[in-house]
Design a protein around this nucleic acid. Structure first.
Lengths: 208, 208
DNA sequence: AATTCCAGAGAACAGTTGTTAACTGCATGG
DNA sequence: CCATGCAGTTAACAACTGTTCTCTGGAATT
């Protein structure tokens, strides 16, 4: 399946990845709509015109970053959905997973939170579409759960959307406490767990 | 209390407001971090240097916009908190209020959703601080409700935060359907109502 | 009526931006 | 081994940016 790339294609992909990484770094303190193409190439140490060999524009780069950022998020969602145990265990696991993901890929989380409502339409749309796929995945997972017996398909998707949004909000809060005292970070985790617990309780009594 | 401004101060405030309005308009298709000072003054029809008579920088303008945008949101929150009736009535009222607010002040909602996680730190901080005030207001309202008898103060604030976040998410979704068919907009409203219902159910069984 | 104040104008600055065209050198396929 | 392809370079372009300094006209103060 996997074909060894020629040294030419390999070098190209390496440069492309360097551009993506540099962009993510620069986006720590600005938004995509203010990210300049020259700025990115300068950070990589490559000529401005080289940018065009990989991307049509910075918006195009943004769409590529969506794939990268959500690509790293996808396995986490799968893990969360696949996790077994009672409600309380699953909640604790979920919060811990979010925490770990933010530590592992802070720039990815920042990018998603920032550009989800950001100023570049194609990027917003790409994020929306991918998050909808995630919600669908979560819905499928919820459908397996005996608690969901008798649930409407629409209601399951509604709940899945709530979970996805909540996950992103929590991730963003963890991000803001990345270089705050551990105590603050723990507080954020506790609040997030209780919010998930409240949603879980609502879920159990939905059909009353 | 109210002092009639001299024509000088009046003219100054008029220009300032024109700058704020122009900025909100320009931010429809970009983020604050890419908004140029010249761009804003050009839209108003005033010399670039006039900008400095009102704001130190575009970040400063952003903070002023936070006050404007949240100032228009505040009355809505008060109304929502003050609304009486059973759960179902209050939810319907809340969704209708959000809908009406998005129609009345789309640019304000866009600005908040966009810059809450945006690339300008002082603006993010200003929004965070004001939303915390809103959550406190909601918490105080919830505390009055008999349903909240026996609730922890922390848990009430946790719930208030959930409501505030949910309100902003819903407002942002309504915003995206501003020029979509009415059917789509109604669908968004129904999903938002069901999410609020689920949270409400969780609230009623929290102390079980 | 004379003086001070100050919102806004005008011009100029050094530096930045995206995009074009024509190039170079090296990996690749025939 | 030679011809083609193509990632990355160099140079130049007009347009734009934030910021400074100087100036002006009319409102505010005395």
């Amino acid at each position: 399946m996997s074909h060894t790339l020629g040294i030419r294609q390999a070098q190209k992909q390496k440069t492309r990845q360097a551009l993506l990484d540099a962009a993510l770094g620069l986006l720590e303190e600005q938004s995509l709509s203010s990210l300049g193409l020259r700025e990115v190439t300068r950070a990589v140490g490559v000529a401005p015109t080289a940018f065009y060999r990989h991307f049509r524009s910075t918006a195009d780069l943004g769409v590529a970053l969506v794939e990268e950022a959500l690509g790293s998020l996808y396995p986490m969602i799968r893990t969360m959905v696949a996790t077994t145990g009672d409600s309380e265990e699953r909640i604790a696991r979920a919060v811990a997973l979010i925490d770990a993901h933010v530590r592992a890929h802070p720039a990815h989380v920042r990018f998603l939170a920032r550009e989800r409502h950001g100023g570049v339409q194609p990027v917003r749309e790409a994020i929306r579409a991918q998050l909808a796929r995630f919600a669908e995945e979560v819905r499928a997972g919820l459908a397996q759960d005996p608690v969901s017996a008798g649930w409407d398909e629409d209601d399951l998707l509604m709940l899945a959307g709530l979970y996805v949004d909540q996950m992103l909000m929590t991730a963003s809060l963890f991000l803001e406490t990345l270089d705050a005292p551990e105590e603050e970070r723990a507080r954020v985790g506790r609040v997030a767990a209780r919010q998930l617990r409240l949603i879980s309780i609502g879920r159990h009594h939905w059909l009353d």
